[in-house]
Write a protein that binds this DNA or RNA. Structure first.
Lengths: 208, 208, 208, 208
DNA sequence: TATGAATGAGCTTTCATTCAT
DNA sequence: CATGAATGAAAGCTCATTCAT
């Protein structure tokens, strides 16, 4: 349900923006932000590089827009499930699996996105870095809601430090993605990771 | 047992190298690799910037040396404890606590190091990135030895995917450090993290 | 006596030209020719900047047209009085006063014009510069007619080098305007200048 | 009598600066500040253009340094004569002649300087413009001292508005130089101008 | 061994101008 | 006629690296 009717001209402009972002995603993730030149982006689209500056203030602005989009997608995934839904630990285990799976999907389908947020953006100017950290933090806060629900419903430990635990959960998730990115990992890794993680998180490594 | 007697001249040169690395650590971690200039490093030491090139091939070479040193320190910590030592889960819990503590120590004492390996180095050329990933991987392999010991001794789950689990453990550890770096976190955070982690890892979040 | 009846369509076009020139006057005098962009001019008129190119060949062409207009106005003022009119030195003094006053009026009413011809145009390509110099020269030639009349009528010195003197007169006039432009001069300055100039020119500074 | 012994190294650097300024004088006066590129300046000296940036912050900085030097030379000339020296109008007439002559000399010997201060600098950023105006103003203030001396000694009119008159004198002087620059003027012009000016200034154009 | 002057590749960015719509 | 998206030449500037001293 769109609120504004799609003006064709705005759409054209929007499409250009998208093209540029798409090309930038390619270039930045391949060569890295600093090595990449505006010319590379424009070159990929066979447009004059001046054109990029009609749609973005500068190179950094492109990255910002890119990061925004990626984080949006990330949060969308995390938000899809409802924190209150699970009533038993088994349901919860499934939720975890789902979210993990979706995230893996998201970043496996387009590893370029992961490269940007997990590697490039972290070494750049304070504002981008902060933006990503905020995004990750937000994701952790959402995760925390799940944990709190679990504690409330009684299937998670009462004394659980949900703040810490949510960050640990996030860390595992993202680390899995990071490792998955480093091409030298076999394709079954993701599957193993996804299967092992919920058990690890819920039951720990210790013998019962 | 040194194989070659320490020639004073080699020592002098070695000292210079150290100085430069120390200065580079400062500068790179503060301004970031790209923003930092060779001149900044030399400036800090009040030496001509040409001098840096007598001790290092180029700017990237300095970073490589820096990363080497940092990873060395990291592995040293992880190696300090012996994977075979623990015989009960309680001993193991203590080992984990120890290692975690030492790592926190290492990177809290000198957050510059963490900034370099966890942020800067990851956005640079493939060789540095790989080097860091290898370091982290090595750390995970070591961790895995502990886990295998645990499984063998029977205080960790028999079916534990030690490869995955070791990476998860690492992830939690490093995430803690990363979060700790983002200055806006209060000083008690480290303590909470360190206390919560072993339990999380061993018993998970689920209610027993 | 117009030769062609004013076609309404030509008038519309003419009006557009005028609008653009007016806007250009604003923009050029405010930001300077180089800092000003075609977009600024078009922006002021809320028209597409491509439109400017339907009325002018290029940016420089706009300046040329502007300078033409300004110089035209300048010469109009100088031409208003008739060089042959004065018969006594007192009449002449009044003529001078008048012309000076009108010029001050002209450029005080619209200092933007002065900024263009006296500052911007002089630092641009040879053709504009020459055009302005020619205009100033023409103004001096006119002034010279007055002087020649004065010599002929006997109220100016017989040996007066009218060529030089006319240029000196011009110089004083224009310098007054230039100084007046530099905002930090008080409003009474113009009055003092206008009053002092005729005496200076006619009687000099020396004691009689 | 130098206060500091001339360090050879400082001299070398100083020499480079001078070379660059000299080349810039050439280039700026020939092509105009905006048309001129740093590359042109460096090209003239057969040095890398980066070198210019070792000695000057940026392009504008070069112009500033240039203008400073020119204005210094200008003021030096004006300062050479002493305002209090003249006791009769004839002595004063000679002083005027001298100063005028020297200024003509200064700017005829190196018309490039005149082009910079009288044309280029006036169309540039506020700071340069102001600097030049200040220089010209300073020159007028000095001239005023001469006039005040003349009034005091009684060979200039008692009621003379010395402020205005000094500016008028300046104007004539500089206009002469400006006209002289426009190559199409014959070489005798300067001589005529210099001869006519003192009389004009002292006795005016009116018949006695 | 240490220096820092010199270098120039290479980047980002601007904006006058064109032209298809 | 009017538009403004697209263009790309052209410029300023930085800084890692070299090398004569």
């Amino acid at each position: 349900m769109r609120t504004t009717p799609p003006s064709p001209i705005a759409n054209r402009a929007e499409a250009r923006r998208e093209q540029i972002l798409e090309a930038a995603l390619d270039v930045f993730s391949e060569k890295g932000y600093h090595e990449a030149g505006i010319a590379d982006i424009a070159g990929k689209l066979n447009i004059g590089h001046g054109t990029c500056y009609r749609y973005f203030k500068n190179k950094l602005d492109i990255l910002h827009a890119l990061v925004d989009r990626i984080l949006l997608g990330l949060l969308e995934v995390v938000r899809k499930e409802s924190p209150e839904k699970s009533n038993t630990i088994e349901e919860y285990r499934n939720q975890i699996k789902n979210i993990g799976w979706e995230l893996f999907q998201l970043f496996s389908k387009d590893p370029r996105q992961a490269k940007i947020v997990f590697f490039e953006a972290m070494a750049l100017d304070e504002t981008v870095k902060r933006k990503v950290q905020l995004g990750i933090d937000k994701s952790a806060r959402l995760t925390e809601l799940y944990l709190k629900n679990g504690v409330k419903k009684g299937f998670l430990r009462k004394e659980l430090d949900t703040r810490i635990a949510s960050q640990a959960v996030n860390a595992m998730m993202f680390e899995g993605i990071r490792i998955n990115l480093s091409s030298k990992v076999d394709s079954k890794f993701a599957k193993r990771w996804l299967e092992e993680m919920p058990t690890l998180m819920l039951e720990g490594m210790g013998k019962r």
